[in-house]
Design a protein around this nucleic acid. Structure first.
Lengths: 189, 189
DNA sequence: CCTCCAGTAAACAGATCGGTATAGTCACTG
DNA sequence: CAGTGACTATACCGATCTGTTTACTGGAGG
């Protein structure tokens, strides 16, 4: 990726997330990135492709960030679940103050054949698998149910955070997730 | 509201929800409603105002639907919490297959000064107050916490439903909400 | 030295955007 | 019968949309 292309993706990332995909034109992205439209179309081919790379890059950066936090959390399942929510909390303040970019993008993309679709659903499937894996370590017999519950808490917290439904929903979800984990552990330790 | 205006709002409701607000032009709405653009601007004044009335109507219809279900559920707090999730399940299939319209609209509206903003945040505040009220009946000492947890489960379920993260997330959230309620009740009956 | 490539600058295309203007039809109502 | 309000039909406005085109510049590598 050339320096100009990187600047384009960076500008697109901020504008698409803050204002919405359809509300942002390529002229604005070009101006913001200090680049001509020709450069955008030479590097990305179309706005649609730029949207795809915007979401793919968000996804990749979030996964890398979370992986780092999980590594630092050690092997204990309880600490790792806690780490996921703490990572979301840290991430939300810097990059996700309007909620999950995948959920927001999904609101603007109606066609399931859109090339960005698998990125969106892929991240959600990945998060579910992550939570289910963590649940399996803590309560093997109840992993499926527990993993889904953690997923719901997590998604709900991101929405509540973006819409400011009440203060610190991600911290609240983290505490609730821990309680759920402990309850499942108590039933089959 | 005149018959033509009603047709406009009905068409706008479907199109805005299914395709997104910015992706739908007034010409399309006019064509879909069998109406000229002049009628739209005579009745609504602007696209922005039409968006406001689209969201306000959704909000109103959802609250009325839910109120009916709550009345039918009787006085027991457990049954009433169950009724909220069952109502969401019934509502989602018919009108909400792409997730919560308020959350989706929020993804497209960046300016907090937008006239639709209070409608969006108002519905979320109303839902939180509803859940907190129900929680108070079941476990008075823990109502604040429990109400927030039920809210997170509910929001998470709507997102998971819209993105098809796993089958029947609303039913799952309902069962989880019941368990949460029972646990809180057991601590202080 | 020459070619390739990333990039700028700027004009242009056709479509669509939100919104307005003009003219006229129809039904109801005082 | 005159007036009013809801509505259709159609043309138009300037702005903006995604995307293309042409012409040119500067640096890196063989």
């Amino acid at each position: 990726m050339t320096p100009a292309a990187l600047r384009v993706r960076t500008a697109a990332d901020r504008l698409f997330y803050e204002r919405g995909i359809h509300a942002v034109g390529v002229d604005l992205i070009a101006a913001e990135a200090g680049v001509t439209k020709k450069t955008i179309y030479d590097r990305f081919g179309s706005k649609e492709q730029l949207v795809v790379e915007y979401l793919a890059d968000r996804d990749e950066r979030w996964r890398a960030f979370l992986d780092g936090r999980l590594d630092a959390a050690g092997p204990d399942a309880r600490a790792r679940v806690r780490a996921v929510f703490d990572a979301s909390l840290a991430w939300a303040g810097d990059h996700n103050s309007k909620g999950c970019s995948m959920v927001n993008a999904h609101a603007e993309i109606s066609d399931p054949a859109h090339p960005a679709y698998p990125i969106i659903t892929g991240q959600k499937a990945w998060m579910l698998a992550l939570f289910t894996g963590l649940a399996r370590e803590a309560a093997p017999g109840d992993a499926e149910r527990l993993g889904r519950s953690l997923t719901l808490l997590h998604e709900g917290a991101l929405v509540a955070y973006g819409l400011r439904v009440f203060p610190d929903p991600i911290g609240h979800a983290r505490d609730e997730a821990e309680a759920l984990l402990d309850a499942a552990r108590a039933q089959r330790p």
